[in-house]
Write a protein that binds this DNA or RNA. Structure first.
Lengths: 259, 259
DNA sequence: TTTCATTGTGTTATTATAACACAATGATAA
DNA sequence: TTATCATTGTGTTATAATAACACAATGAAA
């Protein structure tokens, strides 16, 4: 896409976007991944605002909002069929500003007097847990890059996106006690210490190795394979995989589980 | 208000409502009350749809959505300063229909060709727990009555309002384990059996009297008064009230509590 | 004065959690 | 070849939480 097409596209978005999207509503996604024993989130660098932002978008006229979130996830990561959930609605009247869009248009060099984009937006936060190595981050047209950030090392962010991120993390930490986590965050086969590290990373505290194993096994969501991790220094740990049937069941029904 | 004013108001709402409200977004409130040992919800009878509906409304241009929910609660119940929380966003593309509004306008006798009201609405569900005897139900302009219904005896409802109600109840039941409930649902002074009945009603199952008392007291949110309930057959139970400081703390921080 | 539905309280068995120690493994270094 | 050693696998025990259960006290109504 060349520069003129880009300007054309922006112009079209501001003038005609309200014909294909719902007004005053947006979706923002907090996409969690686990890599190198760190919990990470996928952020975009907004070219014209010069700030990092959450992958977001709008709701098509005939689209369920859950689908909007999945569409955004797919566009940024290439991933399909990922479980996503809404965690909060952010509706502070001053959370989005007309100024930020006007500045943006000025930088791009497009003149717009009135637009649905100048209006206030209420945003719904969705979160997803994805398998880090499968993701090929793709920036959107308004962004120059799409990168993973350690959850403890988040740069300055657009609007209230830092609050949204914070809420998503709190939500994930709470969910951890009642719902299984890991299927999307870990490779198919993984070791008990790896799973524990994931939990410790999300909760941001140490867990007892033996108690953790006992509890997680007691839920029945894991199956131990007849193989051990190869090419590892020291004693080779067993490999496990999720019992998908029981995992799904626990996702819906909850588990009653305290760490 | 006479009939002409009403038609005028409706007309104005359809033609000009989008100037004061956000588009495509609504708020629906599930207002729970406890009376006669029954959990009840406040519903409106929508005059022209001839169906019961949840009290709902729209978000003013410069209003936080939490405030919209509180405004709606205040209008229907007269109550102020009630803790409300969003519990889910409902966004099925077919959840609201143009037809229902056109039927409504036909019944009222107002002709409208295009209106923001004909568009699709995404709604955010808010729930509130209120003190039943304090409520003086007030129907809105589109409703002929505003009444309490037993949660187990809900009439046919508008759109997806039954789903919204169901979700609100499930949410309340889950919350019960982690957050204190009762301050808004019970009178200032209450007995232990009354509090237990409230919990049993919400959870829809029996609880052990002695274990319930032990657990609820162990949270520290209750203060036993030096008086007993008067005018009661059989042994007079002690009166309790909430320790508001600890109650509020438990509201925010959670309690870790299993029934 | 008796009746009786209801409240207040205590005990015990069972289960869950937290804290903790030592043997087994197997790559790496000596 | 053998010793080292970080790491994994597993078991025990003390403590706390939960579930199941029984009997005495009250006080209005009969």
């Amino acid at each position: 896409m060349n520069y003129m097409n880009f300007k054309q596209e922006i112009s079209n978005h501001f003038f005609k976007g309200h014909e294909i999207y719902l007004r005053n509503i947006s979706v923002d996604c907090v996409i969690f991944g686990f890599d190198n024993n760190e919990l990470k989130v996928l952020l975009l660098y907004a070219k014209y605002a010069n700030l990092w932002s959450l992958p977001g978008g709008f709701v098509l006229q005939d689209e369920h909002m859950d689908e909007s979130a999945k569409r955004i996830l797919k566009e940024r990561t290439g991933l399909d069929d990922i479980y996503m959930q809404q965690f909060h609605v952010f509706s502070h009247p001053a959370r989005s500003t007309r100024e930020i869009n006007e500045q943006f248009l000025k930088n791009v060099g497009v003149r717009v007097k009135e637009s649905w984009m100048f209006e206030r937006f209420i945003t719904v936060g969705y979160s997803a847990l994805v398998n880090f190595p499968e993701v090929k981050p793709v920036p959107d047209v308004l962004s120059s890059s799409c990168e993973w950030f350690n959850i403890h090392d988040i740069p300055e962010m657009l609007l209230d996106h830092r609050d949204i991120l914070k809420k998503a993390l709190e939500n994930l930490q709470t969910q951890l006690n009642y719902h299984p986590v890991g299927y999307n965050l870990l490779p198919e086969k993984f070791t008990m210490p790896e799973l524990q590290k994931l939990y410790e990373t999300i909760l941001d505290r140490q867990l007892d190795r033996r108690n953790f194993q006992r509890k997680i096994l007691s839920t029945g969501i894991l199956k131990r394979l007849n193989e051990t991790k190869k090419g590892v220094a020291h004693k080779a740990p067993w490999l496990y995989k999720f019992d998908l049937r029981k995992y799904q069941k626990a996702l819906k029904g909850g588990m009653g589980f305290e760490l």
